[in-house]
Amino acid sequence: MEERAQSKGHALSIFIVGDHKPSLARVFYDKGIFPENVLDNDEWSKGKYLIKPSLDYRDEMIINSVPMFFKIPSAADTNIARDFIENKPFFCLPSLMANMLEGGASEDLFWLNLSRLCSKGIDKVSSVSDLKGTFELPLYSERLF
């Protein structure tokens, strides 16, 4: 893919996104990735490896992280992208990708506002509830895909 993009004079960015961790709760617990305090002990004792329905922000970030690999043509851009997306909700990824498009997406108010929201500190961007103050959820869903 890189050779083909280069032959046409295009930059190539690659994003590979994994699955959410909760479906593998037992495996991640056994490997020491999930701490015991995030588990629903009543369900766990019944052989159901479930996460507590209510977690604090730090534990929520551990549980809801999504593994991702990305390769961007410039090392400097890779560092900027990593800093922008690291420990942020998944809804920030489309904003990052839109801003990387040729010409960027900075003129589109949707992407500009989403980027502005995702540029906040990690403790200020926590969940879909943060989107409610910026977008109507159907609008967000439509634009995301």
Rank of each mutant, 00 (worst) to 15 (best):
D40E: 10
D42G: 06
W44L: 08
W44Y: 12
S45E: 13
K46Q: 10
K46V: 03
K46G: 07
G47F: 08
G47E: 06
K48F: 10
Y49L: 00
L50S: 07
I51P: 08
S54A: 13
L55N: 09
D56N: 15
Y57S: 10
Y57L: 09
M61L: 15
I63D: 02
I63V: 15
I63P: 01
S65W: 02
P67L: 14
P67K: 14
M68I: 15
F69Y: 15
F69H: 14
F69M: 15
F70A: 01
F70L: 10
F70S: 03
K71C: 05
I72S: 05
A75H: 09
A76T: 13
D77V: 01
N79V: 11
N79T: 12
I80H: 06
R82I: 09
F84I: 03
E86A: 12
E86N: 15
K88V: 08
K88D: 04
K88E: 08
K88I: 03
F90C: 06
F90M: 11
F90D: 01
F91W: 08
F91Q: 03
P94N: 12
P94T: 15
L96G: 01
A98Q: 09
A98W: 03
N99Y: 02
L101V: 04
L101R: 05
E102I: 01
E102K: 04
E102M: 00
E102D: 07
G103M: 01
G104D: 04
G104N: 10
A105G: 14
S106Y: 06
E107C: 03
E107M: 03
F110P: 05
L112K: 04
L114Q: 04
L114F: 02
S115R: 05
